[in-house]
Amino acid sequence: MRHILVYGDSMSWGLIPTTRKRLNFEERWPGVLEIALNSADKHVRVVEDCLNGRRTVWEDPFKPGRNGSQGLAQRIETLTPLSLVVVMLGVNDFQSMHQNNAWLSAQGLAVIINTIRQAPVEPGMQIPPILIVAPPMPYDPKGMIAPKFVGCEEKCEGLAEAYKEVAAAAGCHFFDAGSVVTCSEYDGVHLDADQHLILGWELVGVVSSILK
């Protein structure tokens, strides 16, 4: 059995918009991906490491442990051998307490990639390939999370293109989730259940190709 690590934030954790509840495993996109791959006899286990509020390299001044580059190398070491690491981060880089743009977030992504590749895995074990998934862009944030994302739409403009450039330069695989799904109309930031289903199925072909 091959193992895939999904490294992400609340969008992949499966936060149900306007609530603090979580979609069931089979409803959120990493679960949809695992079930579909195993139905096609790929024999995989998808390991989720998705923390609400996680950034690429920035700290949350109000909650500890949201810098995605911290502890990542040890996480890779713990789970080795891995057949693939899927990284879907970025939206939280544009929370209102950060003055980031797409280029800066992409530099944070480059640190994430380098951290994965420099992980101290056991001798003879290979560093896994990396799939970068650019998240769909938030729009018109609403409800309890709205103050966190004031101005995010302008700051994150061009993120998919910036992430694609970093992925290409680093020799990583790339997929733009925004090409197939959109953020929820209820909170403007997270994914509704139907969008999780779409994204999970869209990634089946991408991941299958990499695993070959």
Rank of each mutant, 00 (worst) to 15 (best):
S10G: 09
M11V: 10
S12D: 03
W13F: 11
E26W: 12
R28D: 14
R28V: 13
E34Y: 09
L37C: 03
A40C: 08
D41M: 11
H43F: 09
H43K: 10
H43V: 09
V44I: 08
E48V: 01
E48K: 07
N52W: 12
G53I: 05
V57K: 08
V57L: 08
E59V: 00
D60R: 14
F62P: 09
G65M: 00
S69Q: 10
Q70N: 15
G71K: 13
L72Y: 03
A73I: 02
Q74V: 05
Q74F: 14
R75E: 10
T80M: 15
T80P: 09
T80I: 15
V85H: 11
N92L: 03
S96C: 03
Q99F: 14
W103F: 11
L104R: 08
S105V: 08
A106Y: 10
Q107F: 13
L109H: 13
I112F: 03
T115I: 04
I116N: 07
I116R: 08
Q118E: 10
A119Y: 08
P120C: 08
V121T: 01
M125I: 15
Q126T: 11
L131T: 01
V133F: 00
P135F: 10
P135I: 07
P136T: 06
M144C: 01
I145P: 05
K148S: 14
F149W: 00
V150H: 11
V150M: 14
E153M: 15
G158V: 02
E161M: 06
E161A: 08
K164W: 08
V166P: 05
A169C: 04
A169R: 09
G171M: 11
A177P: 10
G178R: 07
G178T: 01
G178H: 04
V181Y: 05
T182Y: 07
T182L: 08
E185C: 05
Y186P: 06
Y186E: 15
G188Y: 06
G188N: 01
I198Q: 15
E202V: 13
I210Q: 04
L211N: 03
